[in-house]
Design a binder for these strands. Sequence first.
DNA 1: ATTAAATTTGACCAGGGTGGTCTACTGTTG
DNA 2: CAACAGTAGACCACCCTGGTCAAATTTAAT
Lengths: 221, 221
Amino acid sequence: MGEKEVDIIIARFESLEESKQHTIRQAALEEFAQHGYEKASTNRIVKAAGIGKGMLFYYFTSKQELYEYLVKYSLEFIQIRYLDKVDAGEPDLIERLTQLARLKMEAQAENEEVFKFSAVFLQEGEAYLPKGLAAKIEELKQSGYRLMYEGIDKSLFRKDADPEKVFHLIRWAIDGYQQELLARLTGQKLADIDFAPYWEEFHAYLAILKNSFYETEEGLR
Amino acid sequence: MGEKEVDIIIARFESLEESKQHTIRQAALEEFAQHGYEKASTNRIVKAAGIGKGMLFYYFTSKQELYEYLVKYSLEFIQIRYLDKVDAGEPDLIERLTQLARLKMEAQAENEEVFKFSAVFLQEGEAYLPKGLAAKIEELKQSGYRLMYEGIDKSLFRKDADPEKVFHLIRWAIDGYQQELLARLTGQKLADIDFAPYWEEFHAYLAILKNSFYETEEGLR
DNA sequence: ATTAAATTTGACCAGGGTGGTCTACTGTTG
DNA sequence: CAACAGTAGACCACCCTGGTCAAATTTAAT
């Protein structure tokens, strides 16, 4: 198989010690996440990573290629460390969303920058990406969509309301809690936080949701 | 009263035709909203506003002063066209939030850029602002907070759940709908949209919320 | 020990964008 | 005509950009 120059150059990066790869990757993820593709600075990246300017272009042929590498890396990370772990067979919406929230939080604690960066390239779109990658991004979106909307048993909801609407109300409530929690926790390193009290609080909310939106077993209220 | 040079220069801008002021203001608001203070470009602003470079510095002494002017303008706009119109006496949470949502939507339709820009300076903080203005921003935040949280009669909620939690659940649901609607409507000019069908849909959601989270009058379900 | 190859650095480059100035020009008013 | 407010955009010095490259250093092979 004929190796292109690009492959050889990238291979240099991949044969680095994991810890060094990690340092460089995180510096780059953070820079792109904060500034977007155009305004991200390779100078700041090398400074943050603690390497000489030359090395970045020894490992990657260009800023563009570095960006593509990070997108690929992030897609794979999200797929493997998050989406693949979801049990798509769970028909109970609240259970499903709880699972989604928990797994996402765990993956985020593992590598927060990946998620911040993914928000950027999901929003910047295909602008700086080859078609193959843009397609993979689309796949991820679809995959996430299915995990959230497919195979939910809406007959669990109370019968006197449009189940489609109940579905959304529950989703918004859970998203809202998650967002508010993340906002409350800004500044702290997610990995260092003991989430136990928050999960407890979260389940208190879920209990109310079930009580309010699900069909009660004995008709009691 | 001794007028400073700055006041004279700003006065030049303020004695312009309203329509021209508007053009320049909107161009600047959009630029700062999109790029933040540091990365905003005065060159792009003058191009978008259709004026020569010199004029901007004929109306404003510096980029910094232009920014401060826009902050002041936006604060005033939000106060007068939005917050002042809220009836803080309404004790029913859903009524209150509905009002908030409707008034905000109306103000946003009137000048979307102001709201996008305000998101930026609320987040960038006091970095580029004199203390007086930073204080005014804080006031606005407080004011918004009070309008959302103060004087709500939580005894309207069903008795079998923590009212504090019910409060948040309702808020998240309404915020969720609003956000989703805004996302659905991206690209269209808010001012041109007929909101009637959306308000109808919105009220269907509200009915479910009331039915699920409020104390029922006759104990029926 | 010697040589060859692989890493690593940072000074350096041309190009482009920055906020801000200034000269020259145009209208308006008396 | 003169005085002056308004207007345009060429121009300035400066800074930062992505990327290169010659030289220095480390590693591996002989």
